[in-house]
Structures are given as C-alpha cells and as structure tokens.
C-alpha cells in the first residue's frame, strides 16, 4: 500500500529564527524537504538542531520567516488562525510525548474528539479498524487515569488517525514510555503507514525509534545534513555519531 505518490507535506527553503539582534538564534536555515504520501519519516538531530521547530512549522503550530510550507494542496504559511484551525482539524493529526488526553472524556470520546469538534460524523468502519489495530477494544469506556501510559499513547495514536489526516505528526511519542509500550506504539505507526497509507512524520532522538521509519532525515544547525532510507538502529546510531563529530569540527 505504498503506491501513493506525491508529497503529503513539503517545506521549500524555510527560514526561521527566534529573538532579534545579537540574541537571534537561527532555528531553520533554508530547509527544503518533501514527505511522500504513505511513508513513515523520522526527523532526528541533536538538541537545538531545529527538528522540533521544523515539525511545528510544518504543522502550522509555528510561523516561518520565509519560504513555503505545504500540507497536501494547502499552503500553510499565510493562513490566519481560522485557516490554521481548519488545517489542523482536517489535514493534520498530532501525537505528543505527554499523551495529552482530556481527563473528563472516555477513551472513545478522546479518540473521536477531533471529529466531534469539527462536527463531523464518525466513520464507524474506520474507527473499528483503528481501535482493533491499536488493541483498545476493551478499554473504550475507560478514562485516561484508568489507563497505563502505553494505553494512553495508543489512544492518542487512534485520535490522530481517526480523522484520516493528510499527515500525522508525532513529537517524541515514545519519550514517556517504557521500551515495550514504546515498541507497540512505533509498530502501530509503521503499520498505519504501510497498511493504511497514512503519512507519518515523527520527531525523535532515539535511534531505535527512528529505525521503525521508512526514512530518516538528520538535522543539524537548522539544515538537513543526512538522509537514510529503510534504516536499521545501528545505521542511525552511526550516522548520529558521525554528525556529532561534524559538530565538533564545526565548533573547532
């Protein structure tokens, strides 16, 4: 099911800096990248490399200084709050490190929340497929406090998928999970790309997590510096070590 072609998300020569004058920090320095439909991409890089900023800008959560950002056919930069909200509602799904579920809602209500907010009907067949895939069938009436961390993150995954967005952005989704729960979540993300053609973009600093992806791009100092396809954990780790070396060279 990887036959879909064309970019689900695209950044063209994106520049972004924080602060002004002397204190200005360049987070993104002319990043151009495309995320193909139906692929699972990991963004890696050391702290301060701009990987989170890139994701936030792609998702329309943060503004850019110059360049263009596209989600599907929608140009993200230039949208006002309403347009951005619509974009997030229909074309983007999020998975956060902190799960971010609403404690007042049951698992099922949390999953269907994006649809409810937009006043859309739930596609029951798709909903069933999703919850069976994440294995939450018997947990639907539970509240977040009654779920384990792994279960909560699977609820968050299901929530991101249920509206069939153009792209799911996952920000360190395994950062708060033990390795077994983390593996479940990553396996699920990979499956959603392979089986359902869902485009997934994940930011992580964990080489093992990145190895689940179809493609890994490496950021340093706001630039894309390397790219791996169908990586193994070892290959990712080696690349990161090499980049570390590059950094030291740059600093020296």
């Amino acid at each position: 099911m990887t036959g879909n072609v064309g970019a689900a998300a695209r950044a063209v020569d994106v520049w972004k800096s924080y602060g002004t004058g002397e204190a200005a920090v360049t987070a993104l320095a002319g990043v151009s990248v495309e995320f193909d439909r139906g692929r699972f991409t990991a963004i890696m890089g050391p702290s301060g490399s701009g990987k989170s900023t890139l994701m936030h800008c792609l998702a329309g959560l943060d503004t850019i200084d110059s360049g263009d950002v596209w989600i599907g056919d929608t140009k993200v930069n230039g949208l006002r709050d309403k347009g951005l909200t619509d974009l997030r509602r229909r074309q983007v799904g999020f998975i956060f490190q902190q799960f971010n579920l609403l404690p007042t809602l049951t698992a099922e209500e949390n999953i269907t929340l994006p649809l409810a907010i937009g006043g859309q009907k739930v596609d029951r067949a798709w909903f069933d497929t999703v919850i069976d895939t994440v294995g939450l069938r018997d947990r639907l009436t539970h509240r977040p406090t009654q779920l384990s961390g792994g279960q909560q993150q699977r609820v968050a995954c299901a929530r991101a998928l249920v509206a069939r967005p153009e792209v799911v952005f996952a920000d360190e989704p395994t950062g708060n999970l033990d390795s077994r729960s983390g593996a479940e979540v990553l396996g699920f993300l990979r499956r959603s790309a392979r089986d359902f053609g869902q485009t997934v973009v994940m930011v992580t600093h964990d080489p093992n997590a990145a190895s689940y992806a179809d493609r890994v791009i490496f950021l340093a100092d706001g630039r894309i510096v390397r790219e791996l396809h169908d990586p193994t954990a070892a290959a990712v780790l080696d690349t990161m070590k090499a980049l570390d070396g590059d950094d030291r060279l740059v600093v020296a």
Binding site: D81, R89, N100
Partner: peptide, 14 residues
Amino acid sequence: TRELGLLRAIGMRR
C-alpha cells in the same frame, strides 16, 4: 493550559 493547547492543536476554534 495543556488541555486547551491540545484542543486547539486538534482543531478547536477560538
């Protein structure tokens, strides 16, 4: 705050 952030992130209007 975080809940509100999430709601906005998944498409809740102001």
